[in-house]
């Protein structure tokens, strides 16, 4: 067995600004565990986030991080991976960031299948802006922007991901960091886009979907012996469960599908980053001369 890295390696010295008890702490912990378990060192990872409470995560960790703008980490991360496939690229952002403002990027990423891992800190609320309803807030949820209860149906991220062609779909719960770490690690090992939607209680602004609320409902899919995550139909059925019982674990996994990068012909002879490094060393201007032919 290879030695396992010490998760403390990923600790940062920065001040953490999350509220005590926030579910994001468990996600931070699970991510450190997952990286340590896989023996991935800080310089080998890039965590890209958006804006929100959860999106501050890269600031609280010792890894390469990029806190971008609200809703946009997926395209940033997709391209980061395309430009340098050697990096392990993770996206970590809130439910508003992922499914609201960044909703189109989410759907496109599912069908695009870039080899990145997407952890959604789903607290069913806008935390950083102090408590407005989010795309995953249940219908009727009362917040400052929905004083009469939200009118829209909640978005079902797992069903959307499945419909959009995602190849790895999981759900974790911030009350259970160890299985979450396992899911993150499996998501990172998966070749292609891996979604891990994490039920993350916001102890300050979401007084409905609390730790207790989730605990009463969640169950582990693995306990159902007959459940086969490669069965798309079964996954669709499970994705519908919410009000009474909420499944946790790997809902769907399609094996053997090529990732986006695997199919980009221009990447065959090297990545954009490695090619540029090579060009700086040896520019070979004559290599472009044949391109003039088409204009003659």
């Amino acid at each position: 067995m290879v030695t396992r890295l010490d998760p403390k390696l990923f600790d940062a010295t920065t001040e953490n600004t999350w509220c005590a008890g926030c579910g994001d702490f468990a996600i931070l912990k699970a991510l450190k565990l997952a990286l340590a378990d896989q023996n991935i060192e800080p310089h080998q990872v890039l965590a890209v986030s958006g804006i929100g409470c959860g999106s501050k995560l890269p600031d609280y960790m010792n890894i390469n991080g990029y806190m971008t703008i609200h809703g946009r980490p997926l395209p940033v991360a997709t391209a980061a991976k395309l430009a340098n496939p050697d990096l392990h690229v993770i996206v970590v952002n809130g439910d508003g960031d992922s499914y609201g403002i960044g909703g189109n990027h989410f759907v496109q990423s599912c069908r695009r299948n870039p080899n990145i891992t997407h952890i959604v800190e789903n607290n069913q609320i806008y935390g950083l802006t102090k408590g407005q309803y989010s795309p995953t807030s249940d219908k009727g949820f009362v917040t400052t922007t929905s004083p009469d209860g939200s009118i829209e149906l909640a978005l079902n991220p797992l069903a959307v991901a499945l419909a959009a062609g995602a190849t790895f779909i999981a759900r974790a719960f911030a009350g259970q960091p160890k299985p979450m770490a396992q899911m993150i690690a499996e998501g990172m090992q998966h070749r292609g886009y891996a979604l891990i939607d994490v039920l993350q209680p916001c102890v300050t602004f979401n007084r409905v979907n609390t730790y207790d609320w989730y605990r009463k409902r969640v169950y582990d899919l693995q306990e159902e012996e007959s459940y086969d995550p490669s069965d798309r139909e079964a996954a669709w059925q499970k994705a519908q469960e919410w009000e009474e019982r909420i499944p946790l674990g790997i809902l769907y996994r399609a094996e053997g599908m090529p990732a986006y990068e695997d199919q980009v012909k221009a990447l065959e002879g090297g990545s954009p980053v490695s090619r540029l490094t090579e060009l700086v060393r040896n520019p070979r201007p004559e290599q472009y001369e044949p391109l003039k032919e088409e204009f003659l």
């Binding site: 946009r72 395209p75 940033v76 991360a77 980061a80 395309l82 430009a83 340098n84 990447l267 954009p272």
Partner: peptide
Amino acid sequence: VTKHAEDEIAAACMVIGASFTGA
């Protein structure tokens, strides 16, 4: 590597992501 993105927001963000990693 050319990427026809889903919109110009994504295109600009992709440029930034690729550039951040050194391309």
